[in-house]
Amino acid sequence: MQTENFQFLADLLMKKSGHLLAPEKGYLLDSRLGPIARKEGVDSVDELVRSMRTRNDERLNWAITEAMTTNETFFFRDRTPFDLFKAEVIPHLVENRRPGVKARIWCAAASAGQEPYSLAMILREERTALRGMQMDILASDISEKVIEKAKAGIYSQFEVQRGLPVQLLVKYFQKDGDMWKVDPSLRQNIAFRTFNLLESFRTLGTFDVVFCRNVLIYFNQETKRDILNRIAERMAPDGFLFLGAAETVLGLSDAFEPVAGKRGLYRRKQMAQAKVA
């Protein structure tokens, strides 16, 4: 791809989603933008970008931003965060929330829904431990396409075999032709919406638990820092944050501290401590 076209795309993504387009990721352009180029009736991705530079078509700009997002996900991805949610988070919230008050979970990069549905399955399986406590899940993602898929809750045979124990498949899914459909009762406590992490979080309310996994890796340091600090503002003082295996708050935000020995799990730092630090 011509350098000035690559730069145009990199600037566009930075502005729309905050995502970095590193030169070594250039190989993704053809596979991800090729279908859009064909739909627009041009021969190559270079051609597509050239035509974009001459007209400012918001619809096309957005389609390209969305096509460049990575939506790799699976049920109970990395397992540990879900074990920690069960072993650490649920007991803490049951102990520290007033009866009748709903706890809130935010899946900030929910992709096609496997993460929120995995949590919803845990909440059902752990009903006794929850002692009547209700938890609502907000599942958001920048991509409208994946949020639509998440909402539909329909997965291929391949997708339901990645990370999902067969006992849970039998319990919470129905076969629908070649596909598998999530039991509608699992969706009861999940709200799905498209949401760009560059936007203000004020409209989202506050959360007891935030899953923000495998998305910070796509941002530059400044945006990572900004997102983490804005998540902290939306969290209960004793809230929990889960990051992806390759992500950390260290060197980015003083608002969180890692929970010793619990990989990927962070707590809000208490104010007094934060000032000392």
Partner: peptide, 22 residues
Amino acid sequence: NDMGHITEALRAGANEYIMKPF
């Protein structure tokens, strides 16, 4: 790869279930 076979397998004592192709 239908629910009937999977539940029959679990009832007979299978621990996991892979639907081909794998």
